[in-house]
Design a protein around this nucleic acid. Sequence first.
DNA 1: GCCTTGACTGCGAACGTATGCAGTAGATGG
DNA 2: CCATCTACTGCATACGTTCGCAGTCAAGGC
Lengths: 332, 332
Amino acid sequence: MRDIARATNLSQSTVSRVLNRTPTLVPIAEETRERVLSTAVALGYRPNPLARGLRGASTMLLGLIVREITDAFFAGAVEAVTTAAAKRGYNVVLGHAHARADEAITLWGVLEARHCDAILLLGDTRDQPRLLQDLAGAHVPVVALWQGAQTAGVPSVAVDNQAGIRAVLDHLIELGHRRIAFVGGSRLGDIKEREEAFVQHLARLREPLRDSYVQHGVNEPASAVAALDRLLALPEPPTAVVASTDVLATGLLHGAHERGLLVPAQLSITGFDDIPVAAFTVPALTTVRMPVREMVELAVEMALDKPDRARDITPQALQPKLVVRASTGRVG
Amino acid sequence: MRDIARATNLSQSTVSRVLNRTPTLVPIAEETRERVLSTAVALGYRPNPLARGLRGASTMLLGLIVREITDAFFAGAVEAVTTAAAKRGYNVVLGHAHARADEAITLWGVLEARHCDAILLLGDTRDQPRLLQDLAGAHVPVVALWQGAQTAGVPSVAVDNQAGIRAVLDHLIELGHRRIAFVGGSRLGDIKEREEAFVQHLARLREPLRDSYVQHGVNEPASAVAALDRLLALPEPPTAVVASTDVLATGLLHGAHERGLLVPAQLSITGFDDIPVAAFTVPALTTVRMPVREMVELAVEMALDKPDRARDITPQALQPKLVVRASTGRVG
DNA sequence: GCCTTGACTGCGAACGTATGCAGTAGATGG
DNA sequence: CCATCTACTGCATACGTTCGCAGTCAAGGC
């Protein structure tokens, strides 16, 4: 920038004012503006975000803490975030928490130190109350995604898990299923909400919930395989299994095939999220499509475009949509 | 930092020297050091990376340009990178190129402007010669991963694609297959090397390569399904298909199932990469395991620990390993 | 012709850190 | 007792910006 000032015989401050097209208190001559801009281009000027941030201005950095990036669903979400951020000229600083909340806290500190303009939190971290506490007292807008609906203190964007589960259950009931089991990945956030929605909706439909029909584990295919084994060992094994995520559903499909069960003839399986691979499993997975892009867009908008109002907004949960494919069929 | 200086009645410069445990020219009294450190902790001091970078020092930022983060394989790689970077106290700035090389160029500029200490390039970008040109003239160490072996100008870490393909082919031949086809995702980098290795090794084994037995597309399951259709329509359809990636193999499994083909009884399918879901497809996928962590660790080491020597190093390609699962069987 | 006004532009101080160089003690040797 | 050396510590500046404030110059009103 100093080079530009020298080349144009102007002061460095004037150059700064021109380049920021800022709604400045003082006016700038049109001729000067053009002269500066052209020489800026000629000299290949690139602003230094470090110096800008140092002065307290925007760093154009969006912090992103993601709990488990290996998860296909979150990978897609990260993509959506980078896209939405890039659209606004922002860069994304990625923090990976390895599913360990204490690391998330560390990351949090790091990102704050980096003066990110906003921070997005992907995936549930409510098992770590201290993190949310820190977050609430932060001087950077924070928006949480996929933490479940009732996140206290932190603005969040959620999906209507109840509606999704209702759609899945109605679909299975309509196909004649009565023995429907649930496989959850953990007891956190969205997963927990889906489990509760499962139990509640079954009760509302006056369908019995049998013993041990709700299984837990971690959100990995292997865990689903183990849960399936437990379900099949029951005196009255289920004819349909609702998985709380597509990742688990993938494990169920695999487990069923390994044990010689035909899907959907002998066992119907549903997922949740509609990750890209869900359309290409064997058989293709009936699941609930998550409006990832919409949710991310909304979150980024909240975080960057109207950060001051973010705290007040409690957006209604966005609506998911049932996608029927080949992994569900009439009870056999 | 100034607060610490005030609290300890020392100058800010001394505090800086202590906190950086720098091999300083001038010595520092042990007592002072401890006094500074304790008050630093007490005041909850956090260094400001912006200011540090401004002064020309390290920003502790690792730039990461990834071509397609939705790809399950790259998602795993990103995880490995964040882990390796965190181990060294580095943060990762994520750039997503959306498979568009021109965006990668933009990102490149952005990351350079952010004064990243090093930049990692994930996935092939050799279709954009200008990018590599810029990279070669960069004043930041750049290391490329999964660009194929013969990357000119830029230090890179590669996998021995030939060895992987040889292992797959030997395995299939041993199972009695003679009609073996190949499905590639594109004609770039690793994929291209795998295709070439396929053709070469078949020739070395004196096995005929039939017409149209090498199919192309993009690296998505749907593309593999289309390729499979073309292969099955041939007068002599293959008994085994080698996919250049697990993502494509997933599509092949899906396509085969949809068309009523039993895997592996009627058709054997192999992948490449061993993405996490490969062990849980239906049936479980025979594939080639990519040493992702080792490769990433090596790349990060090259980029951060010995950047000056990075340009000279031409690491031998790391060795992949055949993983036999259930998607391959004796020719039926 | 002088003063006011308005339209610009430049000056200079911050932001938080790193570091060369100059200072200031106390210790030690002559 | 003075000079010299050593072991520290402080001063000052630079890094590339932003922005409040002061300065300059021409035009216009009286």
